[in-house]
Design a protein around this nucleic acid. Structure first.
Lengths: 373, 373
DNA sequence: AACAGGGATGGTAGCGCTACCAACAGGTAT
DNA sequence: ATACCTGTTGGTAGCGCTACCATCCCTGTT
C-alpha cells in the first residue's frame, strides 16, 4: 500500500522506450538501482536534444534558442520531470543550500527572522538548512561543521560573538557569510542588524526624560545582545548620576513571562524604591505588567515599564507598553537578499547594513501630565 | 580574503600523494573539478583499506572488524574527513532529509512543534527540510512536489485535511508520512495529535458547569482545527440549549492579540449580554483580557475567558487565564521518533497516537464563590 | 579430506547531473 | 577566398558515494 513509485514509473519507462534506444531503456528498467523517476536524459530523449542542452535550458534559458526551449519545456511537463538536487550538488560541487544558525526557536524574535528568510527566498530554488545553537558556542561550532560538509551556497549566522574556531571556519567557508541581528566592527563578510548598545541608551534616556530616577534593568537570558543593551543603559545612567548596581537584576535562565514576574519581585526586594523598569525583552515586560496588576501597582503612575522588540501585543496591552521596535522580519528578508546577491556574484556595495530601531513610546512610560491630556 | 579552501586543500593533496598511486593524485590535483576536500577514497588510501570498507565503517560499524574500524577512525580524524551528503543521496537514491510542512511560522504553536522536531532529532545525521504553507493548499502541494524531488526519508505534514492531489502525492511518496496536530480516521500512514473536537467540547462544558449561559466563541484564522474546536463548542451548546449563532464571531484573518481585541468588541456589539468567551487560541484570549481591563469589565466576575494552547504566560496573567494545554512540543518530538523508527524499518505498533490535552482551569473562569475562598 | 556456510573485505559500475571542451553554423573582417 | 569570431549545440568524463556482486578466509560438518 505504501509503495507505488515503481508502478508510477512504468508509463514513463514505456514512453522512454519509444524514444531512446529501446535496448537502453529495457536494461534500465530491469536495474534495481536508480530512483525510477525521469531524468535529464529522459527529457532530452523526448525533446530530441542533448541532455546538456536540457540542463542549460533549465538553469540559464537565455543560452538556448526559443524553439528548443519550448520543446524542452513540453517534455519536462509531459514527464513531470523534477531535477535531482543531489546530483546537481555533486556535479557542481556546490549545494543550493543556505545554512542558517540561530540560537533559539522558542524566542519569537527568531521565528520572525526565519519567516523573513523564508519569504525573502520567494520561489527561488534554494533550500534553507536550519540549525538551533541553543546559545551554545560548542553547538554552533558542531552545526557549522555539519553545514560546511554540504558546501552551502551561503551561511547566515546570528550575532557577532562567534568563538575563535567558529570565526575561522566562517572565514574559510569559501561562501558568502551574513551575520545578522547586530552590527559591529570587523565583519566576517556581510552584516545586517542594528546597535543594541544604542538601543539600550535610547530607552534609558527616555525614562530619564520622563522624570524617572530609580530605573531598574531586568534581563533574562543575558546573551551578548542583551548585555550590550545593558551596557547602553549603564552608560546613560552613569552619565546622569543615577547608576546603582542594585538596580540591575539579571539571570542567564531562559526568558519568559513568568521569569519577568520573578525578576520583578526580586528587583522590588532589592530596590523597593524603583520607579521604572527597563526589560531586556517584551516577555519580561509583560510579566512585570501582570505582576504590577496583581500587586495593585499603577502603571505608569507608580512605576513605568519599557520592553524590547515591540511584539504586536505591546500596543494593545492595557496599559500599552513602551518598547523598542526591532526590524526582525526585515533582517531576515534582507539577509537572504544579500546572500542571494553575493551568490549571484553581485556583492552589494554596502556589506554592513544598519537597519536601526525605533522607540515606541506608549502609556506605560508616559508622564501623568501627558496621560491626563 | 574570502577564499582559502584551495590553500587548505593542498596539504591533504600531498598526504594523498604519499599513499595512493602518485600518478593518480597528481592528475587529481590539477583537475579543476572536485571540492578539494578529502573523500572516502583518501581515507581508504591512508588507512590502507578499500573505500567500500570505509563506507561501511561509517554507516554500519558492526560489519567491520575492530582493528580496521580503528585505523579508519584515525584516518578520518587525521584528514578531517566529512562525508558528502549529496554523493550519498545520489548513490543510495535516498536523501537523509525529513520534509516538514507547517502552515505558519508566526504562530508560536508551530515554533514549539519545530523545536520538538529539532530536539527529537538529537545528533542523528538527518536534516530537516522545512516548508511554510501559509495555510494554502496550493502552496502545500507545490512544496510537497519540491520535497519529493529530493526523495526524502520521511515526511511530516500538519493536519488531516490535505487536498486530493496532496493526499495522493503523500500516499505515493514511498516513504513514511506522519500527519501531526490532529487525529482522525483514515491516516495516510502515521498520525499524532489530539482531538480538537473533544477539546472544544471540554471547554464549553466547563463554562456551562461554572454557570455561564451566553458563552461566545471568538476565532481568528479559522483553520480546520479551529473549525473542529468550534464544532465541539457548538455541539455542547446545542445540547445545553444555549446555542445562538450570534455568539460565534470568527474571521479568517491571521490571529493576533489585537485581533482578539477587535473580535471581542465585535462580539460585545452583537451580543452585549455575553457572560463568557471561548477563544480559539491564547493570543485572542490575551486580547480579550486587555480589552476587558481597558473597558473596566471584571474577569471573571462579569465575564469569563478561556483560551487555547496554554502558552506559558496564561498562568501568570492577571487574572490567570483558563486554557487547554496542548502537547505541541511533544507532538514534534514523537513525530520525529515515529518517523525515525519507520525509516529504520521498525514501524511502531501504534500508528495513530492520541496525546490528549488538559484543561487548565484558572482564575479567569472561576465562580465568584470559588474565588472568594 | 573435501565441502558447504558465513563473515569480512574489495572491485566495479553506476546514481543524475554539470564542467569542460569540441564541433559546427552563420556571420564579419581581412 | 581565408581567417576569425560569436553563438548554439553536443560528447565525454567525471563529482563522491553506495548497491551489487565476487573473492577470500576461517570455521564446522560430513
Amino acid at each position: 500500500m505504501r509503495n507505488s513509485p515503481a508502478r508510477r514509473a512504468s508509463p514513463i519507462g514505456q514512453m522512454r522506450r519509444g524514444v531512446a534506444s529501446s535496448n537502453d531503456s529495457e536494461v534500465r528498467n530491469r536495474s534495481r538501482r536508480g530512483s525510477g523517476r525521469p531524468t535529464l536524459a529522459d527529457v532530452a530523449g523526448l525533446a530530441g536534444v542533448g541532455s546538456i542542452t536540457v540542463s542549460r535550458a533549465l538553469r540559464d534559458p537565455e543560452r538556448v534558442s526559443p524553439e528548443l526551449r519550448q520543446r524542452i519545456a513540453a517534455a519536462v511537463n509531459e514527464l513531470g520531470y523534477v531535477p535531482n538536487p543531489s546530483a546537481r550538488a555533486l556535479a557542481s560541487a556546490r549545494a543550493d543550500v543556505i545554512g542558517v544558525l540561530v540560537p533559539s526557536l522558542t524566542n519569537n524574535v527568531f521565528s520572525e527572522v526565519l519567516r523573513g528568510i523564508h519569504e525573502g527566498l520567494g520561489d527561488c530554488p534554494l533550500q534553507i538548512q536550519f540549525g538551533n545553537t541553543h546559545y551554545s558556542d560548542e553547538e554552533e561550532e558542531r552545526l557549522l561543521r555539519v553545514f560546511l560538509g554540504q558546501r552551502p551556497s551561503a551561511l547566515i549566522v546570528s550575532g557577532i560573538d562567534q568563538g575563535p574556531t567558529t570565526r575561522q571556519m566562517l572565514e574559510e567557508a569559501g561562501c558568502p557569510v551574513v551575520q545578522i541581528m547586530e552590527i559591529g566592527p570587523d565583519p566576517v563578510d556581510m552584516m545586517i542588524g542594528f546597535s543594541h548598545l544604542e538601543a539600550g541608551k535610547v530607552v534609558a534616556r527616555h525614562l530619564i526624560d520622563v522624570g524617572c530616577k530609580r530605573i531598574g534593568f531586568l534581563g533574562a537570558r543575558m546573551d551578548p545582545r542583551s548585555r550590550r543593551r545593558l551596557a547602553g543603559y549603564e552608560a546613560v545612567m552613569r552619565e546622569a548620576g543615577h547608576f546603582d548596581a542594585a538596580l540591575v537584576t539579571t539571570t542567564i535562565s531562559p526568558s519568559s513571562v513568568s521569569m519577568g514576574v520573578s525578576l520583578f519581585h526580586k528587583a522590588l526586594e532589592r530596590t523597593p524604591d524603583v520607579d521604572a523598569v527597563i526589560c531586556n525583552n517584551d516577555d519580561v515586560a509583560l510579566g512585570v505588567l501582570f505582576a504590577c496588576h496583581r500587586a495593585g501597582l499603577q502603571v505608569p503612575a507608580q512605576i513605568s515599564i519599557a520592553g524590547f522588540n515591540d511584539l504586536e501585543m505591546m500596543e494593545v496591552a492595557s496599559p500599552s507598553i513602551t518598547s523598542v521596535r526591532t526590524p526582525r522580519y526585515e533582517i531576515g528578508r534582507r539577509a537572504i537578499a544579500m546572500a542571494r546577491a553575493a551568490i549571484a556574484g553581485k556583492r552589494p556595495q554596502r556589506t554592513v547594513v544598519d537597519l536601526g530601531f525605533e522607540l515606541k513610546i506608549r502609556e506605560s512610560t508616559m508622564r501623568p501630565a501627558v496621560l491626563a491630556l
